[in-house]
């Protein structure tokens, strides 16, 4: 038994973790942008789910995964625009509208599947499309690394996985080294101060929400055109919420969020692998959620202590 459990921890686990981290990382990086602009975006889950189905529809219709990816991003942008309009222009509460969008996405995707596919449980196209995997054969010569980037069967990581990893430094650069990024952060830091130097706060929040939409679109495309090549009812299964947790654990910064997303990715990968060990699957799949609460608490306690120490020093 112990040997079985230890066998889970091998280099293949890293490969698998990178794979399952991808949608969480995309959504979480999107969440970072919203949070940095002072927008609480609980809609990540629904945006991801909606774009997963629309992306697959578009991809299958044109038999091109790339157009599918584009379709997913456009779908996510449209729903994000609704979110932005209702919360920023009409001043509705962000958490409430976010939850409403999630409820809408679950219902509406089932509605679309039934209307256009005739099945409520899944949309399983006859000619699915897939975003390609990118094997890097020459790395097989490097001990360990070959297994991590090419996997046990040498199939390679998905192109979206590489894109998500690349997004971390790019987003860092964008947020901290460009004027636009500075303005975006200033809106989140202090909207009044930002407005006083002529930054249009509402417009910046719109931009932030739409940029988030691009990332959740990519997350959705990965779910239906890479993770699996079909759409299943409620297939995001809370990944958007885990992404939100990753943003908070990562202190709303790209690199911290990346590490947190990776932590959740590993938790999910371990639970996926442990299911084959005849442990009760419900208990094992609880693992990532328990990890989230424990780490969230731990980080909150740390911040709390830090605040107290600062107050004591004054």
């Amino acid at each position: 038994m112990l040997a079985d459990i230890l066998a889970v921890f091998n280099l293949g686990l890293i490969f698998m973790a990178l794979r399952v981290t991808t949608p969480i990382l995309f959504a979480a990086l999107g969440g970072v942008i919203s949070e940095q602009a002072g927008v609480v975006n609980v809609a990540l889950e629904g945006l991801m789910l909606f774009s997963a189905l629309i992306g697959l529809f578009v991809g299958v219709t044109f038999q091109s995964p790339w157009l599918g990816l584009l379709g997913a991003i456009v779908a996510s942008l449209l729903l994000s625009l609704v979110f932005a309009f209702v919360t920023q222009t009409l001043k509705a509460d962000e958490v409430v509208v976010g939850i409403a969008i999630n409820v809408f996405a679950v219902g509406f995707t089932v509605f679309l599947m039934q209307e256009f596919g005739g099945d409520k449980g899944s949309y399983n196209p006859a000619h699915p499309v897939a975003l390609p995997n990118v094997p890097i054969p020459w790395l097989n010569g490097v001990p360990g690394l070959g297994m991590i980037v090419n996997g046990p069967n040498g199939q390679g990581l998905n192109v979206m996985t590489y894109l998500s990893l690349l997004s971390v430094p790019l987003l860092t650069f964008f947020l901290y080294r460009t004027v636009f990024g500075l303005r975006l952060r200033s809106v989140g830091e202090s909207p009044l101060a930002a407005a006083s130097v002529g930054i249009r706060v509402i417009r910046m929040k719109y931009y932030a929400i739409l940029l988030t939409g691009i990332f959740t679109g990519m997350a959705g495309a990965f779910m239906s055109m890479a993770y699996v090549n079909m759409f299943l009812r409620n297939m995001t299964a809370g990944r958007g919420f885990i992404a939100l947790a990753a943003v908070l654990l990562g202190a709303r910064k790209p690199w911290g969020t990346f590490l947190a997303a990776l932590l959740f990715g590993f938790a999910e990968a371990i639970s996926n692998m442990a299911q084959s060990l005849r442990l009760p699957s419900q208990l094992v799949t609880m693992f990532p959620y328990a990890v989230t609460i424990i780490t969230l608490t731990w980080f909150s306690v740390r911040d709390y202590r830090r605040r107290q120490r600062r107050e004591a020093a004054l």
Binding site: V40, V42, V95, G238, F241, L244, A245, L248, P280, Q282, L283, T285, M286, Y289, A290, T292, I293, L296, T297, S300, V301, D303, Y304
Partner: peptide, 23 residues
């Protein structure tokens, strides 16, 4: 007590409660 974000903690607890019941 600690300011732990309630949106995230309650969402996670939901899943844990449902899975525990299923188990």
């Amino acid at each position: 007590r600690f300011g732990a974000n309630e949106v995230v903690s309650t969402l996670m607890l939901n899943t844990i409660a449902i899975k525990f019941t299923s188990y």
